[in-house]
Structure formats: C-alpha cells, structure tokens
Amino acid sequence: MAPTDAPRKISDRSIEQFAGADLVREGTRGRGPLGMNAAVHALGPVLLVSASGEAQEIERRPLAPGMPTMDFIFVEAGTFTHSVGSAWEECSGPLMIAPSGLPQHVRFITPWRFLVARIATDALRPFLPALPEHARVFETMRLPERAMAGYLASVGHDATAGPGESLTASRLIVEMAGAVLRDRFGSGSPQGHSSTDIWGHAQAVIVEECTNVDFDPRALAQRVGCSLRRLQAEFTDRGTTVAGEIRRERARIAHALLRDPAQARVRLATIAEQSGFSATSTMHRVIAETFGVPPTRLRGIPERPSE
C-alpha cells in the first residue's frame, strides 16, 4: 500500500479532483490550511488543470525539481504577485508561461481561478531551438493564445472523450502551445521589422512544406522572397540554422506519427517518407538528437509529464 503522504498518480484519460491535502503532497505549501482545489485531466503529454482558491500566500516546490514540463497558465479571475528574485511583482495579466520545475512563491491578493496546460517539454522542443527558462507574464493575449484558452476550456468540460479523441485533443493542445511559444519567444533579437517578417514567414513555410523531401534552405529562401545568405543570417541571429529548423519540424511530425497507435504497423521507412526525410537512417539520427530516444522506443508509448 502506498504511503498516505505519497504524491497521487493520474491515469491517462482520467480526471482527478485534488483538495488541499492532495496539493500539499504534491509539493505546495501555504501559511495555514490551503484554501484551494484543482481538477486534473490527463491527456497523454498534457495535464489540463483547472484550479481555484482564496486570497493566500503559497510556495510551490515540486517534489521532482527540474521536472521537464512547461506551464501555460491562463488567469480567468484574480490578481496575484509572484517573486522575481528578492522582489515581488504584481500581476493581473491573463497569461503566464513558466517552466514547472522552478520554485514559485505566489501571493493571491483576491479569489482566483486558473486554467493550466502542463506539457512535457520533450513534446515542445521541436518548436524552438531553446525553450524559455524563466516565468513570463503577458498583459494581453494574442489570437493564438485566445484560441488555446478557448480550446482548453472546451476540453476541460468534456469528461466523455474516448482514447482516440483524447489523443487528438492532446496533439492539438501541443500544436497550439508550440505556436504560442514561436510567437512569443521565437523572434530572438530581430534587427528591424523586415527581419521579423522574414523569420515569421519562414517558420510558416517550413510547417507547410517540410514533408516535401525536396524542400531545402534554397527552396525556403525562394518562397520567403530573400537571398539564401540573408535567410541564413536571420536564423543564425536566433541561434539556429535553416536546415536545423527544417529537420526539427520533420522530427516533430515523425514523433507524432510514431506515437500514434493507428500507425503502429506502418513501416519506419514509410513514416520517414511521410515526414519529409530522405532516408530512414536520417530520421533515426534526427529523432535521437531531438528527443534523446530512437524511433523504436517512441512507438506506442505516449509521453507523460511528471504529476
């Protein structure tokens, strides 16, 4: 029998209710009894959390420091302050993006309600050369973020989804989160408006064309409408390369196909071709570099964030 102070585990596609005592076991501390509760919906590499509570100061120290997840926190109600070094920063903004492994001190000034998508970072790595390492609060939400918030709310209210629907929902959430990360963190330090246009246009074309095995940096430059040298310089300024981003997007597509139970009997050579790789060996190498595991270990094994 598991000890009573052990963290609770959540089965895939289940919805679990967490009260104050459960949250204490998960690493949350407060001054006095925790006046908060949460419902957690498990969807493959995504934990969808609906949480609410009263005005209170809490400290969240995850039981597994540095756990590889990223939180997309949509603030539906409430005002709070959070610690930034030795200072406290007040926030009523509608969105916070934060690595889950960071200890967090939060003071809730008013009753509050959050909707959170906690996503395994391995599922997000293909979208950016480097994921954000510090919490960021955004005072307004852009269109991709509003769309993500609306979809999360819809999924969170549906307790009847079957395995296939849950897998589709988790993929859509990861895609939306990747789009938000690219929009908020993918522009690096652009040198003027034209650089931003080149980067954003290039990212969109890569997503659209990367499954074409003949698509390469030169073809991308032609589609974007700039020289190959200019395109390469824009990617270098952001700490990546054109070819590397094309490989990253192909790896993301192959990763999704390999984890899809419906593709379990499809040959690896076919998966490589569908993802835009010129050879199965190239897919093996790029997936291993991107995700740290070979394609054969991905098959039929859904990723899960740490609870």
Rank of each mutant, 00 (worst) to 15 (best):
130 A>Y: 04
98 A>V: 08
268 L>S: 13
205 V>P: 05
246 I>F: 00
131 L>A: 10
187 S>R: 15
250 R>V: 02
103 P>F: 00
29 R>I: 03
217 P>N: 03
5 D>C: 07
148 M>F: 12
144 P>L: 02
1 M>G: 15
60 R>L: 09
191 Q>T: 11
150 G>L: 10
25 R>M: 08
127 F>N: 00
93 G>M: 11
161 A>C: 03
179 A>L: 14
99 P>K: 05
264 A>W: 07
133 E>M: 10
30 G>R: 04
197 D>S: 13
14 S>P: 04
153 A>F: 09
41 H>D: 04
45 P>Q: 00
263 Q>K: 10
227 S>M: 05
272 A>H: 00
104 Q>K: 06
125 R>I: 01
266 V>I: 03
254 A>M: 03
179 A>C: 14
142 R>N: 13
101 G>M: 02
45 P>H: 01
275 S>H: 01
142 R>W: 10
198 I>F: 06
142 R>E: 14
274 Q>S: 01
279 A>M: 07
114 F>N: 06
128 L>N: 05
297 R>V: 13
32 G>M: 11
281 S>L: 06
249 E>F: 09
205 V>I: 14
134 H>V: 13
64 A>I: 10
225 G>T: 04
226 C>A: 02
190 P>T: 08
229 R>F: 11
241 T>G: 12
249 E>Y: 05
176 M>K: 14
217 P>W: 01
96 M>Y: 05
26 E>T: 06
120 A>M: 08
261 P>V: 12
236 T>S: 15
306 S>I: 12
158 D>Y: 09
100 S>A: 15
116 V>N: 03
238 R>Q: 01
188 G>P: 02
116 V>L: 00
221 A>G: 05
159 A>L: 12
166 S>H: 10
79 T>E: 14
256 A>T: 13
285 R>A: 11
39 A>N: 10
148 M>E: 06
294 P>W: 04
167 L>K: 11
101 G>E: 02
284 H>R: 02
17 Q>R: 13
119 I>E: 02
144 P>C: 05
182 R>W: 07
1 M>N: 14
227 S>G: 15
238 R>W: 03
83 S>E: 11
168 T>L: 14
173 I>W: 01
84 V>Y: 09
12 D>T: 08
157 H>K: 14
272 A>C: 04
229 R>K: 14
156 G>W: 08
